[in-house]
């Protein structure tokens, strides 16, 4: 298969994984978290025990797929080293833009796997912990989820701008 088609396929897999990741991130932040308070206590387990664990499964694995396909794509296109150095060792502003996007994505992936997921396991009762630890874990998960929502806006700007460079 020729190089351009391979690059296209890796980018397509990267974008489709990223849509699932950020789509679920925004579901948590714009739909689930703000509305939990409006759900009667006896109905909360429908979210906490069924919907949230399923959403978290696709969320964390989509994050993993996005970063793996993204790193493969950057390697395949030959700009991974320059991009991770933010274009300061060559490549110019387009490389700086994709590099800033990559670093924001890497930080977000780290937050998903090493902060949000461990905290959610405690908050949703997948791991038995004491009530105060559970409440603290729920707050940590929410704050890091919000941080990722905040980062998703400039991250996507950087990623899309690098693909549509006109200046």
């Amino acid at each position: 298969m020729d190089a351009e088609l391979m690059a296209f396929l890796w980018r397509w897999l990267h974008v489709i994984s990223g849509v699932m990741w950020i789509g679920l991130l925004w579901y948590f932040n714009f739909v689930q978290i703000p509305n939990m308070g409006k759900i009667p206590d006896d109905q909360k387990p429908a979210i906490g025990k069924v919907i949230a664990p399923a959403a978290l499964f696709w969320f964390r694995w989509a994050a993993m797929a996005t970063i793996v396909t993204g790193l493969i794509l950057a390697t395949y296109n030959g700009y991974i080293a320059e991009a991770l150095a933010l274009g300061l060792n060559g490549g110019g502003a387009q490389t700086t833009a994709i590099g800033l996007g990559m670093w924001m994505g890497i930080i977000m992936w780290f937050n998903v796997w090493f902060v949000i997921w461990p905290a959610q396991k405690k908050a949703l009762g997948m791991v038995e912990v004491e009530a105060d630890v559970k409440a603290a874990a729920a707050r940590t998960a929410m704050l890091f989820s919000r941080t990722n929502t905040m980062l998703s806006i400039p991250m996507l700007f950087a990623m899309v701008s690098a693909q549509n460079w006109t200046y």
Partner: peptide, 30 residues
Amino acid sequence: MKNPLESLSLTVIIGFVLVIVLVVVVQAIN
């Protein structure tokens, strides 16, 4: 004091401010 990230609208505003910072950084390097 309440963490600013606890407000969803503030989170979105901070996200857009980061876009402006990003444009300035990239333009400066360009």
